[in-house]
Design a protein around this nucleic acid. Sequence first.
RNA 1: CGGGGUGUAGCGCAGUCAGGUUAGCGCGCUACGUUCGGGACGUAGAGGUCGCGGGUUCAAAUCCCGCCACCCCGACCA
Length: 489
Amino acid sequence: MATITKRSEDYSKWYQELVIKAGLAEPSEVRGCMIIKPYGFAIWEKIKDYLDRRFKETGHKNAYFPIFIPKSFFSKEAEHVEGFAKEVAVVTHYRLKNSPDGKGVVVDPEARLEEEYIVRPTSETIIWNTYRNWIQSYRDLPILINQWANVVRWEMRTRMFLRTSEFLWQEGHTAHETAEEAQAEARQMLEVYREFAENLLAVPVVPGRKSPAERFAGAVETYTIEGLMQDGKALQMGTSHFLGQNFAKAFDVKFLNRDGKLEYVWATSWGVSTRLIGALIMTHSDDNGLVLPPRIAPLQVVIIPIYKKADQLKQITGYIQPIIKGLRKKGITVEFDDDNNKTPGWKFNEYELKGVPVRLAIGPRDMQNRTVEVARRDTLEKKSYPVDNIVSVIEDLLKQMQKDIFNRALEYRQEHTYYVDTWEEFEHRISEGGFVVAHWDGTAETEARIKELTKATIRVLPLEEIKEKGKDPLTGKPSERRVLFARAY
RNA sequence: CGGGGUGUAGCGCAGUCAGGUUAGCGCGCUACGUUCGGGACGUAGAGGUCGCGGGUUCAAAUCCCGCCACCCCGACCA
């Protein structure tokens, strides 16, 4: 019997079992790398389709740059090296040969690369090295490019979707004439992410800035959307960086501006990854399995027949044809599970585990009464409806569920967001989990000290500023605004 | 990289302390039949380099030595 560990018993065990048993992904033979299975990949494809459309609507084009980056590129931006050096995979050889002892193959020592390549942990360096050749004048700007790719960061500890050594993502890399334009771009993409997270994934997020200590390596300003997971830990779900002229200077990318003067180009980069699937799982799911908001669910409606004999199944199959057609016409994905080897009860549990938003059950009783039993995954509520206008009932229900799932997550976040003024309360709230909204004296020292003492970091300085005079709970120094602290993934 | 743990069928485990027929159990899998409104049941069957290498012994999943892999907890991170 495939039941999963309860969240209250062991949250990370629950998470891992859920990912595997719902068929999203499984661990692979490669340490820290996962196999994304069709059901999990279908979610990624939905994420990708929506965002790709939004990127294009905001003027971006897709391109592709190499997975390998010459090692020397990497060292051109000092902070960037500092940030990634400890977790890059390095390609040193290009050939294998048969082992001298006849067992298998070994790396051919003769085939050592002149200059090693690193496997991209992110592509700023190779892209800015390329932009140098593409940009001469302000007329060449802006360049608005996105790429869908895989990247590798050799993390110490991994968890499927949340942190894997290899992950899939998109990275936007734009080049601009002015700082203002680049800043506006970074902010625009943050808003694209926020809208996407809240409306498609139904995950409420706090958009804002990172503190200097939490900034991307090489960024002047890092914007983030932060979500709060059910175990009270924060998750960074997407970032958008204003890179200033740092990469332009490192790669010598200059343009002739409108005043006829040479100037360094202004840059942004922004990305979201397969981590979003982890956020989706951890925000909504329960002890029965996944709960997927309808807009992101690969399968929105499943129909389960209840029957004894083959002729009964035939009858049901006929009965539901108009429903299937009607739903498909509305763009709703639907499957009819007539697998004879599984009982209805087994199927009920299985589709709950997989988070299919709406389940229809149809048996002799329903056919007699001209009804359909409709069960919604989020509340596990069951109700019978007349078959005649069932398609519009389902259509409305899916819309309602999308809202309800978001609101429930928002409510959870509000209930776990605490305004705190004393250090004692700060420590207490952090240890219980949740967002702690507190004053900060603005120094990196205090931030580091708080991290040391509580493992909490400043997750975000909200765009909607909470401006008020107060005192830092740890140091008692004056502060102008509150920021969000939490323990994070 | 420090601390702890685990490797036995596809999955989850027992057996190891105390060596001894043919290595078990549950789930899953295959076939047939009966079932089917919340994870059905019966019968028959398939499936194993006991992580790898070496040693001790008449005899090793079990004892000894070495190695490897993975998991959990910390430090590091999207």
